[in-house]
């Protein structure tokens, strides 16, 4: 159960991060370009929007779902634990794709996008451990 508490707490970092990115995107006040190319390239790229919806907003929804499912799993809802695993693994694959885009297509990294990828990776590890613990018990 402690693992699900950790997952819920970690997902809050992702939630805050993606809300920040959504606000940046929606207000159109992208961050300043600095000596090293970065966020403004990524956030103003065509990949930052999926079917008219800012990708960051989808991310915020995903992290909120992770938080909800992890909270429910903490309180013993088994179906939530299974859904959580599926969701987090999907998010992990999406994160890999986004890192690929930043590295090889946009040629610029955005530290807030990388933070999101790090959070998702951490969530993946936690959820996999939680599944293993559940199977063993």
């Amino acid at each position: 159960m402690k693992l699900y508490v950790t997952a819920a707490l970690v997902s809050l970092i992702g939630l805050a991060d993606s809300i920040y990115l959504t606000v940046e995107h929606v207000t159109g006040r992208s961050v300043r370009c600095t000596i090293v190319a970065g966020c403004s390239e990524v956030l103003s790229s065509q990949y930052a929007v999926v079917a008219g919806v800012p990708l960051a907003l989808i991310g915020a929804a995903a992290y909120f779902s992770v938080f909800s499912l992890a909270t429910l799993a903490t309180f013993g809802y088994r179906a939530a634990a299974i859904l959580l695993t599926v969701l987090v693994l999907t998010m992990f694959l999406v994160s890999l794709w986004l890192i690929y885009l930043q590295a090889f297509v946009i040629h610029a990294f955005c530290q807030f996008c990388l933070l999101s990828a790090a959070v998702t990776t951490a969530l993946t590890v936690i959820v996999l451990f939680a599944r293993r613990a559940a199977r063993l018990s």
Partner: peptide, 22 residues
Amino acid sequence: LLPFIIILIVLAVAVGSAWYAT
């Protein structure tokens, strides 16, 4: 009810802060 209350609080904080920031 506790998990649902926690979830609702987080949702309210998230939506509220996003709204405030925009």
